[in-house]
């Protein structure tokens, strides 16, 4: 398509305006994280007193690095567990024959409709009785598997050609071997998508850790920022912004590095 010169300029103008709107909050957050809080409080956003002092303060005076570590541990454990248990469950629904299989599958499918948020009351009582409160376990155990993950991997496993299974049967591979040597490698793109999805889901958990963790030792980063924000209300904007920037940088890096995979995986999910 041929674009006239003014047409092209106009298009760039809209692109730039939208880019500024999207990226503006990042830039403002980053910029204010470099300013002394005194200047921010005066509204002097064009201050030239730039330094990394807020970052030093955030790392030294708050538990922000500990929160990040906690979140990494929790999200990695959740991701690994979901990859394992969802793939095992999905395998059963595709390659195993047992009574009530289809019924069970539809029951699991139906639970995808239930928001975890609507079930927090009994779940809170359960983890309190199991003595899991205020520990990594409380943020991992309820999410060891997911109906969504089982569903997605089942769809993907079903694309494995029956001939492969027949050949494996002839070779005498048992289910563990077929699961490990054929099914998982075959469905690696879906597994990668589930890995990214479950990691981000866990990383973004907010309500559940807020209810179940009370100490900096286990508090994940979302809840940690909430803690900083409520303690420091409007007193130390510079340090709060620095903490937010520290938190956002790892996920931005992951996003940009993994963007190709993300795009492929998401499109596979959304359009097939």
């Amino acid at each position: 398509m041929m674009l006239t010169k003014t047409h092209k300029t106009l298009r760039y103008l809209v692109l730039v305006i939208m880019a500024i709107i999207i990226i503006g909050p990042f830039i403002l957050g980053f910029w204010t994280s470099l300013l002394p809080t005194a200047d921010i409080a005066k509204g002097a956003l064009f201050s030239t007193h730039i330094s990394l002092q807020n970052y030093v303060d955030a790392v030294q005076q708050t538990a922000i690095m500990r929160y990040l570590l906690n979140s990494f541990v929790i999200s990695l454990l959740t991701m690994a567990a979901q990859l394992l248990f969802c793939s095992l469950g999905a395998y059963a629904f595709v390659f195993l024959s047992f009574k009530g299989r289809d019924f069970l599958f539809y029951v699991i499918l139906a639970t995808m409709m239930l928001p975890f948020e609507a079930e927090v009351i009994p779940n809170f009582v359960t983890v309190r009785q199991l003595n899991l409160l205020n520990h990594y376990a409380v943020m991992v155990i309820p999410f060891l598997t997911s109906a969504f993950g089982i569903f997605m991997l089942r769809q993907s496993f079903r694309q494995i050609p029956p001939e492969l299974k027949e050949a494996a049967d002839v070779e005498g591979l048992n289910h563990w071997q077929f699961y490990w040597r054929v099914t998982l490698p075959y469905a690696r793109i879906s597994l990668f998508t589930l890995a990214a999805y479950s990691f981000l889901e866990s990383w973004n958990q907010y309500l559940w850790p807020m209810l179940t963790t009370f100490s900096d030792k286990f508090r994940p980063v979302q809840d940690g920022l909430r803690q900083l924000q409520s303690q420091e209300t409007f007193n130390n904007w510079g340090m709060i912004q620095a903490s937010a920037v520290i938190v956002v940088i790892p996920t931005l890096i992951v996003l940009f590095v993994g963007q190709h995979y993300f795009k492929d995986g998401l499109n596979e999910g959304a359009t097939k």
Binding site: K99, L114, A118, E119
Partner: peptide, 27 residues
């Protein structure tokens, strides 16, 4: 296959039962 099914699906069913089905009925 049912023994395999038990091993493969058991963990997921236990977790979903405890943290999805039961709380749904309990709520």
């Amino acid at each position: 296959d049912k023994y395999y099914a038990f091993a493969f699906l058991g963990p997921s069913l236990l977790v979903l039962g405890t943290f999805v089905f039961y709380p749904m009925l309990r709520t």
